[in-house]
Nucleic acid binder design. Structure first.
Lengths: 121, 121
DNA sequence: ATAATAGGTAAGCATTCGCTTACGCAAATT
DNA sequence: AATTTGCGTAAGCGAATGCTTACCTATTAT
């Protein structure tokens, strides 16, 4: 039972769930109302999303509010980011921006980050 | 048989394959040499990566060189990007950059792109 | 021509996935 | 107290996944 963010967002229903609660937490039944599949199916998706940290549950009476905690997307983002220069300028200016980032001093970040240090291309 | 980029990069072996050939194309056996699993297993992974456009094959004699074509990662990147402001500043300055992008006029892009127009948060 | 090499693909198999129905329990309603 | 509502989870099932072995066709080497 692999459980990582890449796996979690591979399922379209789970991405839709994230879409749905990204900006406003919802309880489980409200989420399930937006889908064709059964409530238990949604419940299982939510469980997976929780297990890799993309969702947090706030218990409130008998309801469970699901709140998106998308920090973990960073892992995916980073993996893609390392290749961005191989394709990005076809779509946007992001690679220029990244170049700037590498050359400019950090703005508001203390220690503890070893970000753009190993870039071997 | 769903076949999309999210699904394709969900498998760690496939991500490793991409890693391996991102900067230098390799033929299939050379790729397979880097993994524990059998050559056919790798061949099947390559097939999947090809089917969603992340890899192209250049036939060269009896060898097939696999070349990474990572443009399709854009789809994943975009999906994540829309939520970046919900978490990014915990890790880097990207959200500031995105704000700048929205306010600044485009640098080297003509028409035909409707990028950062709908951002409802 | 024969053998070796590169690699595609089918068949089979164990495991995982996504879903359903069924059931259970706690909180809220009546 | 009894019922309803919200939700977790087990069991079961078909389909998909990832792997293997076996076999096949092309290209290259001898």
């Amino acid at each position: 039972m692999r459980r990582d963010v890449f796996q979690a967002i591979a399922d379209p229903t789970r991405r839709d769930i994230i879409n749905l609660i990204a900006y406003k937490p919802l309880n489980l039944n409200s989420i399930a109302d937006n889908f064709e599949v059964s409530r238990p199916a949604i419940s299982q998706h939510i469980k997976i999303l929780m297990e890799c940290g993309l969702i947090e549950m706030k218990k409130q009476g008998r309801e469970r509010y699901c709140e998106a905690k998308l920090e973990q997307l960073h892992e995916v983002s980073q993996w893609i980011e390392q290749y961005r220069k191989l394709w990005a300028d076809k779509f946007d200016r992001m690679d220029d921006i990244l170049e700037e980032l590498k050359n400019a001093p950090p703005k508001s970040s203390p220690e503890g980050r070893t970000q753009n240090n190993a870039n071997k291309a």
